[in-house]
Amino acid sequence: MSHHSSHHSSHHSSHNYQEPEPAGGIVPAIARLPRRTVFKWFVAVAAALQLGDTQVFGAEPIPSVPPLIPPITAKGYGSDPQLNKFYTPGDAWPLTLSKAQRAAAIALADVILPADDLGPAASQVRVIDFVDEWVSAPYPGQLNDRAIILPGLDWLDAEATKRFGALFAALKPEQHKALCDDICFEAKAKEELKAGAKFFSKFRSLASAAYYATPDGWKAIGYVGNVPSLTYDGPPPEVLAKLGVVQTVK
């Protein structure tokens, strides 16, 4: 496990240790907590989640660090929400990512889903609003994801600070790449970065779930439906030819 060797003990109530103030002027909550505390908690949660048991939080002795994950007190939308209405993140329940977490998340989402010839960057289609809505939701699946994403974002800033002396959002492209290359593939991540890689995987999944739900995302992936038409013509000739099939419904 990666942590400051100067940190003296394994118990979690020691608050006398103070991280150096990171560059950029934003001081995330994480930086005020003992790093070892954060790491231990993060790794334990990730390991517990790997078991795939939704009840695991009750069963596993995961160290509790309340300031990291504020509890969700909002209610769900209930069993009879209005369906034919346009919702926007924040409508169903309050968003809860901190300013620092949002900054890290916006930067990370744009590293994962940058502007290119397939479409705009994640930040241009409000991807982080959806991720924030997701991790702020009062449902069990989302609460599990919250327990990965929030400390993960905090860890990302801590790791960026450790390696490059700046928060993740303030890193240069090659620094983003260096960090993300180490955590982008859980199967190949180093042991001490497995938890970071698990966070990255979950974040990439949520960010892309949001990105590809938008009209720009549809274009990027090649979805051209959700439009009314008088007839349904099936696959065009070039698709049939590529597959080597013929249309059997006349």
Binding site: G76, S79, F130, W134, P140, Q142
Partner: peptide, 22 residues
């Protein structure tokens, strides 16, 4: 009056995902 015709997933809470309520 009530059917969500043409609504996109990004126009629903949680991108339209299943929840204990739906």
């Amino acid at each position: 009056a009530e059917t969500p015709m043409f609504q996109r997933n990004d126009q629903a809470p949680l991108l339209g995902s299943q929840t204990p309520d739906k």
